[in-house]
């Protein structure tokens, strides 16, 4: 068995650049999560208007993960479960967020587009692809719930700062050198499509015919 590389968050841009698309790693340290478009819009508005964002995320890891968070009886915070959401929904907002807040890690599921990959390259930031449907495992990796902001929003939209240990494995979906697993898989699939269709045609010809 190979031991997986462990990554401590937040990373420096140099650490982010040491990762490569396709690497499979475990995450330790601090992440900030939100699954909400309105939340990302607030972060962006604050950046544009020169105000303090609802939570300090500069230089950190901002992941597209939704969670159910609530206050505990003793005045603390707890997260009952968490899981990634589709990142491509945030394509339009991410380049500016990555640049302004100098994020060194983003993530979620499904990847981000070329505009985001360019921003990540400029800043020194990677995208972690996190297992969807992995709530029991991701939740077990939470060690501390440090801060929750945007309380007026539904739970999964809130910004939540978490301490995690051994979260993953996660896959480096986009690295800080402009390589995207998602983009190259789409390209490869497009390139193999004519061959796939030919194979289908051959198998169809040999298969039982309708009405026969």
């Amino acid at each position: 068995m190979t031991t997986l590389r462990r990554i401590r968050l937040p990373m420096t841009p140099e650490e982010a650049r040491s990762l490569h698309a396709g690497d499979v790693v475990l995450l330790d340290g601090e992440i900030v999560i939100s699954a909400g478009l309105p939340t990302h819009q607030r972060l962006l508005d604050a950046a544009r208007e020169g105000r303090d964002p609802p939570m300090n995320i500069t230089g950190g890891a901002l992941l597209h993960l939704g969670s159910y968070s609530r206050d505990t009886a003793d005045g603390g915070l707890e997260v009952l479960y968490m899981n990634p959401t589709t990142s491509t929904r945030f394509n339009a907002l991410m380049p500016e967020l990555i640049r302004h807040y100098r994020l060194t890690a983003v993530g979620g599921k499904g990847g981000l587009d070329a505009g985001c990959a360019q921003a990540m390259r400029d800043v020194g930031c990677v995208y972690f692809s996190v297992l969807g449907g992995g709530a029991p495992l991701h939740t077990a990796a939470i060690r501390a719930v440090k801060e929750v902001a945007c309380h007026d929003l539904v739970a999964h939209y809130r910004l939540v700062r978490l301490g995690v240990e051994g979260m993953g494995p996660v896959t480096v979906g986009i690295d800080a050198h402009g390589n995207s697993v998602f983009a190259s898989l789409q390209d490869n699939a497009r390139a193999s499509l004519p061959g796939i269709m030919e194979q289908l045609a051959g198998e169809r010809a040999a298969a039982p015919k309708p009405g026969a």
């Binding site: 990847g111 692809s129 969807g132 896959t171 697993v181 898989l185 490869n188 699939a189 193999s192 499509l193």
Partner: peptide, 11 residues
């Protein structure tokens, strides 16, 4: 399956 997108779409 020949498209190669794979589990979680990372190959």
């Amino acid at each position: 399956n020949a498209t190669g997108f794979g589990p979680m779409g990372t190959g």
